[in-house]
């Protein structure tokens, strides 16, 4: 199994070359991946860990299931998750081997050295969560507008008022168009009776 990744790359080598040629005139970040072999991207081991944890979760849950079988269902609900759990462990192990041998994903590990802007991602997730928390109380028009406004600001927009206006228009338009017009299940929230 150790040669799995290398063999796979040899097999799809033709496509690799096609994919490699793409960034020639592309953004600078691809150049590093083109000229030098990408360094070992050990952050990928997080993926292996994730797969292994998922495997544990799947097997623990499967163990809890009653292993009964009925005449109309000889194997019951248990075998599939157990097989999935075992496969998850196997893939996690092969993945780790591939990473340690310097393997990388589809884009040739082009993102390995890039700066990962965790602050922006975190803020965006916070804005998103805020919408989930507020949507039933404030209603889609307000919480959805806040979602649009917040996301745009987090992603770098500096026109606070214009963005807010656009957000409000979008919120109202989608509510009237989709919820009232097409019967989509969007909550009116505190604006119930006003809209």
């Amino acid at each position: 199994m150790t040669g799995e990744h290398d063999a796979a790359t040899a097999e799809t080598g033709a496509e690799d070359r096609a994919a490699d040629r793409v960034p020639e005139n592309g953004p600078a970040e691809h150049d590093a991946a083109e000229t030098a072999p990408a360094p070992r991207d050990l952050a990928q081991l997080w993926v292996c860990g994730f797969l292994a944890v998922l495997g544990v979760l799947v097997i623990v849950d499967a163990a809890r299931l009653g292993g009964f079988s009925a005449s109309n269902d000889p194997i019951g609900p248990k075998p599939v998750p157990i097989i999935l759990g075992i496969l998850l462990f196997a893939v996690a192990a092969c993945y780790a081997v591939s990473v340690l041998r310097g393997g990388h994903g589809e884009d040739g590990g082009a993102h390995a050295g890039e700066r990962f802007d965790a602050t922006t991602v975190g803020l965006l997730c916070a804005v998103f969560t805020a919408n989930a928390l507020l949507i039933d109380w404030l209603g889609w028009v307000i919480s959805g507008s806040l979602l649009f406004w917040g996301s745009a600001i987090v992603l770098g927009s500096r026109r606070y008022l214009l963005t807010l206006a656009a957000a409000a228009v979008l919120g109202l338009a989608t509510f009237y168009g989709f919820a009232i017009g097409l019967g989509l299940a969007l909550p009116a929230g505190v604006l119930q009776g006003i809209l």
């Binding site: 790359t9 994919a19 893939v91 591939s98």
Partner: peptide, 11 residues
């Protein structure tokens, strides 16, 4: 380009 990643995604 990588089978093991394809299978990880599939699982």
């Amino acid at each position: 380009t990588s089978r093991v990643r394809g299978f990880a995604s599939l699982l």
